[in-house]
Amino acid sequence: MILGLHLLALVLYAAAWVLQLRGFRGGREPGLSGVTVVGGGLAVHAAGLLLYALSYRSLPLVGLGPASSSLALFISLFVLAASVRTDLRAAGLFLLPLVLLLVGEAVVVGIEPTGRQIAFRGPWFVLHVSAIFIGYAGLAAASAAAIMYVFQFRALKRKQFGSVFGFFPALESLDRLNKVGLAVGFPALSVGLLAGWSWTLTFGRGLALDNPGTILGIVTWTAYLVAIAARSRPGPRGERAAVISAVAFLVTFVAFLALRITAREAGFFL
């Protein structure tokens, strides 16, 4: 049943993305149908994770499958929140593939507990992982906005009135989404990292700098700092801030892939 709900969510997310692609090809601003499909996917996805929590009596935060699925849920929440505003519905064009990748990965590796016992558990662990997931989702949203900003900026500067011009939101709207992504994601990531480090400093072996999770956390946090610093410079900031946000996300994503490949502790999120 959990797998079935995830498969259904996967289909709905894929359908929503296809609708976005069709709109992009036609150079038309996205309609309400895509939002409805994303909403349906999100509801089914949330039901799948709720069923997981009820079945295994633990939140789906540990293990590659459950953790990927939970992160995907946070990102699709950003997609839906952005889609409520007519002018930001196109954000799904870049965020939905990420959601599809994560849910697809969860389906492939299996959405079930690893059976491993971890020392860090309880409410602080939930806070740590949830806040970090919101941090990653915020960065993904900010970066999707930044990538679209760069494309739209260039279309407007080069006077190319095609698909990008027609489908992508206004620069100001994208700038706002970038700002919101950073404003929500950075504090959340900071809280998540602090919660993890406080626990390891108090009860554990100290800061585990060789832990892939710690490394990714630090890389992401630094990426955020750079993106925020780029926004705070005086003068026309739009394109510069957007490029820096996009590069920061790219660096984080590459770091995530590299750590996944070299991670010693397979079975955990990283």
Partner: peptide
């Protein structure tokens, strides 16, 4: 249908361009 969408005159094209930068 989408027949009425988009800018079909010079003034409305001007509005559309400005709106693609500023949103509202």
């Amino acid at each position: 249908t989408s027949l009425g969408r988009g800018a079909a005159s010079i003034p409305s094209a001007a509005v559309r361009l400005a709106a693609k930068v500023f949103g509202s």
